[in-house]
Each structure stands twice: as C-alpha cells, then as structure tokens.
Design a protein around this nucleic acid. Structure first.
Lengths: 246, 246
DNA sequence: CGGTGACAACTTGTGTACAACCTGCGTACC
DNA sequence: GGTACGCAGGTTGTACACAAGTTGTCACCG
C-alpha cells in the first residue's frame, strides 16, 4: 500500500510480515502481487525475495511461485542448538558498547511490552518482543556474531509466534517483560556476560514452555522432513510443499 | 569464456576467483564486462553479485561499480575470533556423518596438496587447500553451523592467500598436508571432537605464522577502518575505497 | 465412467531499453 | 595560473517484454 519503497525496505517489511505470520508458512508470494502491493515493478521485489531466500525464509520455485518456508522442526532443532551456543558467544566475544540512545530504544520496547492492553494480543506481544530483540542484537560487539544471531533469530522466531495463541499469554508477557528488565540492568552495568546469562536462561525457559505445549497438543506445524540432500553443498531448494493459503 | 552458465555457477566461480585473488581486493567488477565474459546479460550477473554482496565479498556502489571488498583487518580480526569459537562448536554440535564418497574426495585433495611440483605455486596450494576446506565443511552435521562456517571462511581465506607469497611455502604446504592427514584420521574414527581439536590447533598456528609475518613486514593490505556506522542494523555498505587495479 | 492429452493461466528467469547517479576531464571565467 | 562549471562516459537501479516452466482444467477418446 505505501509507496516510496526500495528493495531494502521491502525486504525488511516482508521479513517482519513473515516473522509475524502475516505470510504464514507455506503460503505463496507472487512477485506480481507484491509488485502491485508495494507500487513498484518486479525488479526490486525480486531483489528482496532473493535476500529472503538466502536468509532461508522463502524458497523460490520456477513455474510455481515463491513459497514461505514451512516450519521444519527437524531443521529448526538444529538452529535452536546453534543459537544456544551463539548466546554463550555473546558473553565471550562482546565488549559492550551500547549507546545511551540505544538504551532509550530498549526502554521504549520495555514500556511497550508492559503496557499491552489486558486481553493480550498475540500479534502485539510478538511485535514488541521482535523489536526488543532487534534492538538488543545491535548491542553485540562482534559483527559476524551479530549478523549470524540476527539471521537465525528470524528463522526461529516464527515458532514462538505461531505457538503464542495456544500458550498462556499473560505468562509469556510477564516472562518477556522480566527478561527485558534483567537485560537492561545488565546492559547498564556494561556486563555482557550477564546479558548472555540472562538471555540463555530465558531462552531455555521459553524452549521448555514451548516443548511442554507441543508434546501436550501434538504440534500443529507438521515437521515436514526435507529429504537429506547431501550432494548439494550450500543449497536449500530441496523442500517442496504446496498447501497454499490464498 | 565458457558459456552455459547460470547465476549460481557464476556466483561460485566469482567467489573462488575473489578468494584466489584473481579479482584482488579493491578491484572494480563491471556488470557489463562480467556479462560479456560469461556470455550472458547483466541479469544473472546481478543476481550473483547480490549474493556476493550479501556474503560480504563485494560492495555495490551506484554510479561507481561493484568493488571487491578491501581486506579490513580490523573487521577480519573479529571474524577470526568468531571462527575460533565456531571451530569449537563443530566438535560440540556435529555428530559425524561423512559418506565414504566424501572421504574419497578429501583423499583426493590430500594427494593434490602432497604432489604439488616443487617450486610451490601459491595459487595451486591455495586452490587445493580451498577445495579441501569446502569438502570438509560438508562434514559438519549442524546445518546452520555449516552455513556460517562456510560463509566466514570465505571472508578470511583471502588473507592467507594474499600473504602466501611472502610466507615459507614449503612450510605452509607441509602444514596443510599434516592438517589434512590428521583430519582424515579423525574423520575415519567418526570423532568430530578430535577433528575440531585438530582444526583449532592448525588454525591457531596459521594465525601465529601470519601474525609474525605481518608485524615483521608491516602488512601490505592497509587496515582500512570502516567508520562505525551503528545506526544501520544489518548494513555493510559503509566501507568506501577506490584503489582500482585495472 | 476412467484415462489422457492439449491448452489456458499462472509462475519465475532472462533480455533489453531507459532513468538516476557518479567520476573525470575539458573549458570558460576570474 | 587557479577555480568553478558543465558535459561526456561509464556505472548501477528500474521498468517492461518475452522465454521457459508448472499446474489445473476440460474436452475428447477408449
């Protein structure tokens, strides 16, 4: 709808929409429709989609369309294990260098989470926590670690967002608020090791809550196994699902 | 020169050429020239260059051209620290699953390194070691870790390749051969922890050799500092150098 | 009624032309 | 002589047209 978009902002917008399940896993994104939506031609759209494909959030299929990557828990389990290790690295590699302005932005998200209206909207909570995480990522001093953390966070965030309606949203909001508080306190002390410890603790707790919910309700997102194509080194064009949504 | 190229193979070819310094840091890559070289139009070239930009190997500048990312030792020091941690993760996260065919390919590279003609060509040695590394990366069981290891290896490999002519090439060859031997032995025992230990040992030794050479000969690749643009979260379009080569 | 083949409608990949932008050089002016 | 301006050449970004590919439908035939 809003015009005045370049390829970069389109990428960011699409990534957020995918993370927040506006474009649910398995849905088809047509370049023509996106071009009409953003008021540009297919060229910038293709650039954004290509980057999304590289980030592992969509898979383009010639003649079919660009499909939002389904949630593959077999793969995402590997991502979770990897992210757990990355969080430890944050404490080991980051010499904290947070600007006061960034701290203010984090305070903003803290207020946003704490002041959500009482019938808590999954969408609003997810949006606020995503923004908190994006701001927090910028506090990571080591650039490669920062880029990688950002990349794989956006691959796994959809799991929590999708599970959120079935979780205790009051509990989730309280957990997020407490995490932000503790992170902020550690950041003010310039203690990235403590930040990492806090992050790890809440990360593990979140995993446990989701796991309890999954084994209880027999997860909705089917763990679509991708055939283990080990012949192609760095290629992620193996999964091939349909299940269109529109 | 060779036709029958799609965007993907062009990307791989360009990445190897950049790693092997066929396109030295700071050189300008014109989309038109590349299109003529590969016998296609600018469209697939642009796709390959966009991926290279995302990998951090080139930076496109409108009106200027696409410049091969200069070697920024300030940044690459962070990458080295990160890769050191990644190597440890290989031991922690990888349940080894190497196919016999892959082992055979690694044997191939072992022979290639050991049978280099005696006035050792820097280029040939670098090429053989790069191929060994690419094959070895495929043995990493955790997919995110594999992707990240591959990405940041290609960002730092140029440093060693560029320094190679000034190093003792017999020593470098011997070191590479010994590393491959020990890695192969550990792989045959399905012992990824030992693989990681070996990798880390040789990685640190290589760093030390390069560091000795650098402080001795006052490195040629100027550590071009990039202004710390902390306002753009995931953006690497800050470095802006010229120093064209062709 | 079941199967099959052709076709229409959609998708993404590529080629081409043009617009926006930057650099460097020549020239006019001070 | 020095400086500022303007234009020519080259670069990447975008828009548009066409080629290649896939899917679903529907008529047709056994």
């Amino acid at each position: 709808m809003p015009d005045g978009h370049d390829a970069d902002s389109i990428f960011c917008d699409l990534r957020e929409r995918i993370s927040l399940l506006d474009h649910p896993p398995g849905s088809l994104l047509s370049e023509n429709r996106l071009a009409a939506h953003y008021g540009v031609t297919r060229t910038p759209i293709r650039r954004a989609l290509q980057r999304l494909e590289y980030e592992g959030l969509v898979t383009v299929a010639r003649g079919i369309g660009t499909v939002v990557t389904p949630i593959d828990m077999v793969y995402l389990t590997q991502v979770y294990a990897f992210r757990l290790k990355l969080i430890d690295l944050i404490g080991e590699l980051s010499s904290s260098h947070v600007a006061p302005a960034d701290l203010a932005l984090l305070e903003e998200q803290r207020r946003a989470v704490r002041s959500l209206p009482v019938p808590i909207s999954s969408r609003r909570l997810a949006e606020a926590y995503l923004r908190f995480h994006e701001e927090l990522t910028r506090a990571v001093g080591n650039r490669p670690l920062r880029e990688v953390s950002d990349r794989y966070f956006h691959q796994t965030s959809r799991v929590w967002v999708q599970l959120l309606p079935e979780l205790d949203r009051d509990e989730e909001r309280a957990s997020a608020a407490a995490e932000i508080d503790e992170v902020l306190a550690a950041l003010r002390d310039r203690d990235m090791i403590r930040v990492a410890q806090v992050r790890r603790r809440y990360f593990e707790r979140c995993l446990r809550r989701m796991n309890d919910r999954i084994v209880g309700a027999d997860l909705e997102f089917a763990a679509t196994r991708s055939e283990g194509g080990d012949d192609a080194p760095h290629d992620r064009r193996s999964t091939r699902q349909r299940e269109r949504t529109k």
